[in-house]
Amino acid sequence: MDKVSTISGRAIPLGLKNVDTDVIIPAHWLKTVSREGLGKGAFETIRAAPGNPFDVEDFAGAPILIAGDNFGCGSSREHAAWAMLDMGLTAVIAPSFSDIFSGNAFKNGILAVELSQEQVDRLLEVAKEHPITIDLENQVVTTPFQDRFGFEIDPFRKHCLLNGLDEIGLTLERDETIETHEKQRAGSLPWLDAPRKHRREPA
């Protein structure tokens, strides 16, 4: 994962609540075996409408999206995060996120920043004309004006993002600890191991 520290630039003022994963990337785009190229399908239904914020020239290449409550609700498809990355988005600001989406965003180095509705409303206003900056190290969102909005982030996630750490690599280093747990589990909950084999070969 690439290191993430400060994200600065234009922010697309979408503002919608309950932006679900079928809106972020409809299912027909999911028939791929790759993570690439999904930007074309990102927000397809919203972008079909003339005058939608994604297609305003000022926001071309904008790294930040501003949305309403419960962003990313619905499916577990990580394609939603991949599609956003592919269209150049590396941060989303919203009053709340679905649990699965915020996890998927983090694994792909997309910052999911939670601010209050009032702060989000202010940023939606500023974003129309001006850039926004998200400083992960100091956990603060700023505008060219006096705005300074602090945000919370899971300390482990922050650490991984700032240092570009590979979570799987980190966990693999805990191999011995995992093995110890597996041995204990084999003693206390033995039926959880080696469920009877089904079929190895296709019929």
Binding site: E78, I100, G103, K107, N108, F156, I168, T171, I178
Partner: peptide, 20 residues
Amino acid sequence: FGIGTSEVEHVLATQTLLLR
């Protein structure tokens, strides 16, 4: 619970997940 593809990879490789 449902997981994203990066977590699918994490579980395949380690049989664990990092969760709160």
